[in-house]
Design a protein around this nucleic acid. Structure first.
Length: 325
DNA sequence: TGCTCACAACCGCTTACGTCA
DNA sequence: ATTGACGTAAGCGGTTGTGAG
């Protein structure tokens, strides 16, 4: 049995005003490893917030690049910014339903649609969960909160059930932008993001983990496709070479004339470093041999744009032995 | 200096749930 | 209305790196 404090999940207004809206709930359970971590982080977060409103009012100064612009599609789009950047941005706010952590309220319309004075804090408002009767001291009866299309009871929230909480498109887009900047987060970034999006740090962490997994999966698919095509091309190449070998063998058995070619007429092919005859050889031997094509394997793997896709800068091309060896 | 332990961060696999055709 | 496929948030166990004793 373990007691722990959780912040952020059932937000309450702290410090008043627009600023930080952190929730607090009591967790009674076995407290898994990750939850331990989360709790520690969140306790740390609480310390930070207690001591002078750390992150919310003094955005982290981390050396991250400015954000790429995202097309604005809805007039109601909210202005978002990464906690560690100064550049604001607007993201699509169309979205199915609403913020899962955000029950629409009268204030919200005002804060999100107008009032340019509070760009930084309006985001906090927008992603703040405003849940009915969820504040401490409001009775404590099992209330339910509207989470997008999903309705989750307090009981479920406290770990009694496993309700899936889908992130809103706004949250996902914001996380996505963050991921573009850095695909891993340090604790401060995690906290800042969590605060910004009004998510638990653990949720941010999980999102990044899953996102990395998705990236990796996609890259694996790309690599697979790349290797498949390489295999295909090599198979064809091999078939051609086998055919040439067969033809040359046939030629050799029928007319082993080149055995009598004077040594002075032989020269080294610079491409494959094999001895080649300068004598005009009729039929098959006269055709440009694959051996004398300038490094066909290298050409294969250096084909411009060959299977180069995805987010990776360069595909992990297999190192093949040189054809000369 | 090497060893052990605790801890944090991450990953891979999996489950559970929401969405959509 | 039902169902199966798919996407994804989250849980869990294992691995690895690091610092303290």
């Amino acid at each position: 049995m373990e007691l722990g404090l959780r912040l952020g999940d059932a937000p309450e207004k702290r410090g008043g005003g627009l600023g930080l809206m952190l929730g607090m709930r009591l967790v009674v359970g076995r407290g898994g490893r990750d939850e331990d971590k989360e709790r520690r982080v969140e306790e740390e977060e609480e310390e930070e917030t207690e001591e002078g409103r750390g992150l919310a009012e003094a955005p982290l100064q981390l050396s991250l690049l400015p954000l790429l612009p995202v097309p604005l599609q809805q007039p109601s789009s909210r202005q978002l910014r990464l906690p560690w950047t100064t550049e604001t941005k607007k993201l699509d706010a169309s979205m199915r339903g609403f913020d899962m952590n955000h029950a629409p309220s009268a204030d919200e319309g005002a804060s999100s649609s107008s009032s340019p004075k509070s760009i930084g804090s309006s985001f906090q408002m927008d992603f703040s969960a405003q849940r009915d009767g969820d504040e401490p001291g409001e009775g404590g009866e099992a209330t339910a909160v509207e989470i997008g299309s999903l309705r989750v009871s307090d009981e479920e929230e406290n770990g009694m059930g496993r309700k899936k909480l889908r992130l809103t498109k706004e949250q996902s887009a914001f996380l996505e932008e963050s991921f573009k900047e850095h695909n891993t987060l340090n604790p401060k970034q995690k906290l800042a993001l969590a605060k910004q999006l009004n998510l638990r740090p653990r949720q941010v962490e999980v999102w990044f983990q899953n996102r990395r997994a998705r990236t990796k999966l996609k890259q694996t698919e790309v690599d697979c496709e790349y290797l498949r095509r390489c295999c295909q091309t090599l198979t064809e190449e091999n078939r051609r070479l086998q055919k040439e070998v067969a033809e040359l063998r046939a030629l050799k058995t029928s007319r082993p004339f080149y055995m009598h070619v004077p040594a002075t007429t032989l020269s080294m092919c610079p491409a494959c470093e094999r001895v080649a005859s300068t004598t005009t050889i009729p039929t098959a031997a006269a055709t440009p041999s694959a051996d004398h094509r300038p490094n066909s394997f290298a050409a294969l793997f250096s084909k411009p744009g060959a299977l180069q896709s995805g987010s990776r800068t360069a595909p992990s091309a297999p190192r093949l032995p040189s054809p000369a060896s």
